[in-house]
Nucleic acid binder design. Structure first.
Length: 501
RNA sequence: GGUCCUGUGGCCGAGUGGCUAGGCAGAGCUCUGCAAAAGCUUCUACAGCGGUUCGAAUCCGCUCGGGACCUCCA
């Protein structure tokens, strides 16, 4: 069974076939480092990290490019053009590049917390000004952009007219009808430089107070919002590549404009498969700056935001995100996060129990159970291949958990399931949880000093219990519980422990 | 106003026309010195109204609610 993904461009699930066999080029829109990343940003980066991991697992050699936008965005159309980064820099009295570096570092820290693999290439907008200027020049030469007062705008009308005839109208990705847009776009001020409201900036003339500025054929300025992704994806992945990813809110205008720019330069639609993750909402509303409802990642991990009842471990967030399908909205609440935290703990303990099971049993005493396990395991690939349904994968792993636990705790006979089936479970749990989903234990349970101390306490308690000195044994157990360490008496007389938050 | 998505049990969330998804929470039981953990059992669903169909959470229509985008957005 082959991998199918939902392609926003065609609005249907399609079999994924790379342009060059065995290789995948994937571009994902990265962060704008003018501020700290919030929970909403975590979703695309975790989603596409899983895409990246799964493609590699399938044997593809993947080049994963995720940019860092460190220059050139506008605060808002209709207002005086100003670079977000330089504006904030003035407020905070920092060098623009110092600010960019600070938030880039924080972003990298958060990505590492989530156990996201670093992309193959992480290009910055400021590092590719030359490429962007070259691309703009090319678009002007082809007649699809014009200069006005030191700024350059993309001629959307002309592009739409010419490329509609070639089956590539402006709006093909987002399903927008340009004519309707023209009638309904809200009134904007200071648009006199543009020939049409739908035109977008490729290059903006920098006003004197602007700190970030570069020389260009049109004077000193800075690049428009969309051109960096076209320039960098073309440079590192070629004129046509396999996957372009990002949040649904980037579909229009950002990705639409990317398509227009790249198509003029390269005469083909840049990416074959466009994947968009849905939004994280809070009380049903998208988490975003404009709603003033963002929870920064550092606040989430530390539990410092007023709305948070407790800190949440990065792995809890990752698990929470993977428990839903990436194209559905996902609603944040303390209750939902807490349930994810408990659920992951339970699943992880089943995974740890699984690793302790023997694989020696030659044949299954309970063939029905053995077959059920086989079935649940076989479905894991089906679910991933069906547009990366991580939610269904986790549901199946949860169905396996009681089977594992009951064997481990003796409620089900040890020989009920064949050793080969146990081995396969061990392999699949490791594969899906750790390698593909990128999950890892919330705490390292292999801290030698702590483990040694606990073992000492466990031994003392065991002695006390053997003397029926329950006062002492309960004291040890209860005081450890107060410290967040839970002792569990196993059926076989051994004692295990786990750390609660 | 335009384009599109969505409405599932106390909460989150998956659902390919027929076969109880799953998680968290609740209840009961087993095990246990007592617990915890674990296992077993169990209660609440498909916004409303029509239609198609032998059969609809799923397809179609209407109504109501929620949301996204329409040039800052992940």
């Amino acid at each position: 069974m082959s991998l199918k993904v939902y392609n926003s461009l065609t609005r249907q699930k399609e079999v994924f076939t790379p342009i060059i066999e065995g290789h995948v080029g994937m571009y994902v829109c990265g962060p704008t480092v003018s501020g700290e990343s919030h929970l909403g940003h975590a979703r695309p980066f975790i989603t596409f990290d899983v895409v990246y991991r799964y493609l590699m697992h399938l044997g593809y050699k993947v080049r994963y490019v995720r940019n860092i936008t460190d220059a050139g965005h506008f605060e808002e159309e209709g207002r005086e053009a100003e670079d977000k980064i330089s504006k904030k820099a003035a407020v905070e009295r920092l060098e623009p590049m110092e600010l960019v570096q600070k938030y880039t570092n924080l972003y990298h820290w958060a990505m590492a917390q989530f156990n996201n693999l670093p992309p193959s290439i992480e290009p910055t907008a400021t590092g590719h000004i030359v490429e962007q200027i070259e691309m703009i020049k090319k678009i002007i030469e082809d007649g699809y952009a014009y200069e006005a007062n030191g700024s350059v705008y993309f001629d959307v009308e002309k592009y739409h007219r010419d490329y509609s005839a070639k089956g590539m109208p402006y709006g093909m990705l987002s399903g927008r009808n340009l004519d309707e847009q023209l009638d309904t776009t809200r009134e904007l001020d200071n648009q006199e430089e543009k020939r049409n409201k739908s035109d977008f900036a490729l290059w903006k003339n920098a006003p004197p107070e602007h700190i970030m500025r570069w020389a260009s054929p049109w004077g000193e300025g800075f690049p428009g919002w969309h051109i960096e992704c076209s320039a960098m994806s073309t440079k590192y992945l070629g004129e046509e590549f396999d996957i372009h990813g990002g949040g649904m809110d980037l579909q229009f205008p950002h990705h639409e404009c990317e398509i227009a720019q790249s198509t003029v330069c390269n005469h083909k639609t840049p990416a074959r498969y466009w994947l968009h993750n849905n939004m994280i909402t809070i009380n049903g509303k998208k988490m975003g700056k404009s709603y003033n409802n963002v929870i920064k990642l550092s606040e989430l991990f530390a539990g410092t935001h007023p709305i948070l009842e407790q800190p949440y471990h990065p792995m809890t967030i990752r698990f929470f995100i993977l428990q839903s399908h990436y194209r559905s909205t996902l609603d944040f609440s303390n209750e939902a996060l807490q349930s994810a935290e408990k659920g992951m703990k339970r699943l992880w303990e089943a995974y740890e129990n699984l690793q302790k099971l023997s694989t020696d049993n030659a044949s299954a005493a309970d063939t029905a159970l053995d077959q059920k396990v086989q079935q649940l395991l076989a479905e894991l690939y089906e679910f991933m291949n069906d547009d990366l349904n991580t939610a269904k994968v986790l549901a199946n792993l949860f169905e396996l958990a009681p089977i594992i636990n009951s064997i481990r705790h003796g409620q089900t006979a040890a020989n009920a399931v064949a050793g080969s089936t146990i081995a396969k479970m061990q392999q699949y749990f490791h594969l899906f949880l750790e390698e593909i989903f990128g999950l890892k234990a919330e705490q390292a349970n292999d801290d030698n000093k702590l483990g040694g101390v606990l073992q000492l306490l466990i031994d003392i308690r065991k002695d006390a219990k053997s003397r029926k000195d329950y006062v002492t044994s309960d004291k040890i157990r209860n005081e450890l519980a107060t410290l967040g360490i839970q002792l569990k008496d196993e059926k076989d007389g051994s004692v295990s422990w786990s750390i609660n938050n």
